[in-house]
């Protein structure tokens, strides 16, 4: 028993250290002279947090876990090293989408698992899942557009009304899942709706505006991670996710402002596409 308690303490202490390293790392990254060391600090925090999580009490499936980390890590390492400097924005979109997908996957495991956490946790799990899934599919569309896999911008009449209705519908299903104890089929419908929402939200936005949109999805993924952190009672996820959510929101506004645009303008007008078409 004492053994479990000390392991628990060690884990919490490591998450605390990781949170400090993340915040100092981001702080250093926001100044040109210290920016390079910032990512190293944050990286150290990530290594500490990941390694200590293997000691988490009551876990199994270590083999699968190691294979998954190796698979995702190696593929990302190779793609990140090989990509040309000019293609960086879409790689950020891709990796960000993966983070959003991971947050949605956590929500899915918790919701499919059917453990009743109570109303508050239900709401947070579903919200995190919704935001994570939207960020996942939205980021993949952003990646496809910047990578040149998707040339045309899809728009149809009443698209914004359609998106609004889809959002309301998804929220309704989300609310039902959070309150009632929904089965696997309804949870699946919810995730499918959320993924479609991410796609239809991103499709009408032109390529020139994508960096702002990627920054927005980055902030959303942070928020999703924070929500799932509450569900899993994980302080490192709550703090890192919330910090990214807030920093990302501010950064999104700054980037939109640097383009002399408002965020609403970027999201709802499709102006960037016509401007890009006129320029090129």
């Amino acid at each position: 028993m004492t053994d479990v308690i000390s392991v628990r303490g060690l884990i919490e202490a490591s998450y605390f250290l990781a949170a400090i390293l993340f915040i100092f790392g981001l702080k250093r990254m926001s100044s040109p002279t210290t920016a390079r060391t910032g990512i190293v600090w944050a990286g150290a925090g990530m290594v500490v947090a990941t390694l200590i999580t293997f000691l988490y009490p009551g876990m199994q499936n270590y083999g699968l876990m190691t294979v998954a980390i190796a698979l995702g890590g190696i593929l990302a390492w190779i793609s990140g090293k090989r990509v040309a400097m000019t293609d960086m924005p879409q790689m950020i979109a891709l990796y960000n989408g993966m983070g959003g997908g991971a947050a949605a996957a956590i929500a899915a495991v918790e919701l499919f698992g059917g453990e009743d956490h109570g109303m508050t946790f239900g709401v947070l799990a579903v919200l995190g899942g919704l935001i994570g899934a939207v960020s996942f599919s939205g980021s993949l569309i952003a990646f496809a557009k910047l990578q040149g896999l998707m040339k045309s911008t899809v728009r149809f009449k009443g698209q914004q009304v359609f998106n609004l209705l889809l959002l309301v519908g998804t929220l309704a299903v989300a609310g039902y899942i959070a309150v009632a104890h929904a089965g696997i089929s309804i949870v699946t419908v919810f995730f499918v709706l959320a993924l479609i929402l991410g796609i239809t939200m991103t499709l009408p936005i032109g390529g020139a505006d994508m960096p702002v949109v990627i920054s927005l999805y980055n902030a959303l993924t942070g928020l999703a991670v924070a929500f799932e952190g509450f569900v899993l009672q994980n302080a490192a996820m709550i703090i890192a996710g919330t910090v990214v959510g807030a920093a990302g929101s501010l950064l999104t506004q700054l980037m939109a402002k640097a383009m002399n645009r408002s965020l609403a303008n970027v999201l709802f007008s499709g102006f960037g596409d016509t401007a890009a078409a006129a320029a090129g």
Binding site: L26, T53, Q60, A102, A105, I106, I214, N218, A247, L251
Partner: peptide
């Protein structure tokens, strides 16, 4: 900085490990 904060929310790995575990 967008890329750096994108890395920081990679902490979701910790939660994903617990969920899989």
């Amino acid at each position: 900085l967008m890329s750096g904060s994108n890395f920081v929310h990679g902490i979701v790995l910790v939660g994903a490990m617990v969920a899989l575990g």
